[in-house]
Design a protein around this nucleic acid. Structure first.
Lengths: 199, 199
DNA sequence: TGACTTCTTGAACGCCCTGTCAAGAAGTTG
DNA sequence: CAACTTCTTGACAGGGCGTTCAAGAAGTCA
């Protein structure tokens, strides 16, 4: 029994990455299948055959986005001292190193954008988003715990609570920046947050 | 010359308020004119005649939302001591006293939701949103300056920067809460932020 | 080669959307 | 009353949307 057939004429991962960029810059609703067909140079039927319908396609892109982001996050926090790394993470919430939106403007965090657009109506999207947030706080909690143990981070609050607060800060910055980024003000606010963590 | 005609059969302000609730709970794109017609019990033509097209209608609702919010914000901060009031503001970002969404779930801040959905593509929306953020930071900056002068708030950072950071926190909390609110964790994070402001 | 499987293509379907418009209803004014 | 203005109603147009599908192309396997 032959299990093979005509091979795909495009690279699945690369196509998903480019779709991610488009979804990221335009949002879910404002990105039509036709937009995807035009941008990806893959016909409708092939997209449906490969990725399922639009929603599945989008959610897959969000998962990929988070996967990449989490890798960067973990790598960045695996250093000493911690606070400069944390500052770096807060400073660039709207851009990943490998995935930069096609417009020059910050597009925010795709997970955050998804939260605003699909949550809480879409339960699957809610799961993906909620899990990303849990992962973020878990990773930061670990790092902050190490920071506290090393005497670098203040122990006036629990690492869990500091991490949760930083989630709010990074998502807030990411969102607000879409409306126009005053880089100086943003940096000053971030430094204020970092200073508050200092032991 | 007669300047009058048949009077409107519905209350304009009340209709706008109810439209605001619908837009708030569903978002711009996911709210169809038909939804509005059904919910508001006002026919399409009347809506178009009164509020213009969908975008103008929505932006008017966002302006109203902000107007109400700003009134509450100003009133809440016009008290001593400042920090409890600030805590109250951070605690309830997703609900206004007078405007509560029809679902039990937090729907976030309508300005934040607009930022995610229409900004930066829609320049008029960007203006409305950016101005709301500027007003928020201005009001909080004033309050924090008074708090610093009174010795209640730490002067280890400039009031402007503290205010900007609080904007991020409130917007981040508001957004993240849509994906499911862990009230205990949220409160702990907010207390962490408030404690960091204490002199 | 021929059978089989998978991918590609692009036309077509049905749906819902925003926005318009003409006819009628409901007021005010003189 | 008649003239005038404004609002209401709901059908309608036109377009874009997501999705499907049949026919053909391009591979593998025996």
């Amino acid at each position: 029994m032959a299990r093979t057939g005509r091979p795909r004429g495009f690279d699945k991962d690369q196509t998903l990455t480019r779709a991610l960029e488009l979804f990221w810059s335009r949002g879910y609703g404002a990105t039509s299948i036709q937009d995807l067909v035009d941008t990806l140079a893959v016909e409708r039927g092939s997209l449906y055959g490969t990725f399922g319908d639009k929603r599945r396609f989008y959610l897959e892109a969000v998962r990929l986005y988070w996967e990449v982001y989490e890798r960067h996050l973990t790598a960045a926090l695996d250093t000493t001292p911690l606070l400069p790394a944390l500052r770096e993470i807060l400073t660039h919430p709207a851009r990943l190193d490998e995935l930069i939106s096609d417009v020059g403007v910050p597009q925010g965090c795709l997970v955050g954008n998804t939260t605003a657009e699909l949550v809480p109506h879409d339960s699957e999207a809610t799961e993906v988003v909620a899990r990303s947030y849990r992962r973020f706080t878990a990773i930061l909690t670990d790092a902050l715990r190490r920071g506290q143990a090393a005497g670098e981070v203040t122990d006036s609050a629990r690492p869990e609570d500091q991490a949760q607060l930083l989630l709010y800060v990074v998502q807030g910055l990411s969102l607000v920046s879409r409306a126009g980024l005053d880089r100086t003000a943003a940096l000053a606010a971030i430094d204020t947050a970092i200073d508050a963590l200092r032991a």
